[in-house]
Amino acid sequence: MRNIAYFWREAWRSLSRNRLLTLATVSTVCICVLILGVALLLTVNAGNFMKHLESDVEIVAFVDKSLTPSQVKAIGKELTAIPGIDKVKFVSREEGLKKLQQKMGMEKLEETIGENPLPDTYEIKASDPREVPHLARKIEKIEGIYKVKYGQGVVEKLFQVTRWIRIVSMAVIILLALGAVFLIATTIRLAIYSRRKEIYLMKLIGATDWFIRWPFFIEGFILGTLGALVAVAILALAYNSLISNMQTVFFLPLVAKAEVVNRIYLGLIGVGSLLGIVGTYISVNRFLKV
């Protein structure tokens, strides 16, 4: 308990003694976390956008015109029973026609053609959009359904692309985090280097490694957290103004849920603290080999 006060006092003393280095490290962490945060927000938004696209994917099943209404209903029941299907919506041929008329802007399409050419359809949403091609094949086999459409080919491509975007952005984030650790390790190494005589002396007097390490860990923790706090403040300001300004102009579907965004901010602060501690760990051990 006595030592904890000593550790904090020593950490604080070192921070205020090496103001320039403190500033340099805090800025380094700040920039790293800022880049990390931008990358993270981009990824989250890209993910959100992709989910948007993916959830638009639906299967349309065309029902044979010769079926009686009760048979059509039975197909609906059969569809709902398939595992992995989220929603099944029945669109009767009359509704289908209305929609088509609206879409084409022709009120009296039926009169022009003479009869309603459309079949009854089911619009089906999968609980996991990636299962769509698989489900579509299953649905095709149901008796009374003569055709299934879901944007064959295009959908498979879309999922391939979104998967790659996810992998690449994860890799970029990991690389950035590694870079940040390296930079922090270097800056903290400088802080330790300026105190190497003191550390050597402590070792020869008989201080334990942990006794020497703790103040540096606290220092790294403070530097990391401080840098991350500044970065998150900048990020939050920028992102909030982006949401309030851009959304109205470009209709970007930005992630604005406080719950999600706050979790990202908290995570970034945690990452900053962790970077400070890991960076210190890498640096400090080299000076304890006496």
């Binding site: 070792k203 020869l204 007097i205 008989g206 201080a207 334990t208 490694d209």
Partner: peptide, 14 residues
């Protein structure tokens, strides 16, 4: 062992 060194050094003044 490494962790026994501090005790050794505490018994000495340099």
């Amino acid at each position: 062992k490494r962790k026994e060194i501090p005790a050794l050094r505490r018994s000495m003044g340099i």
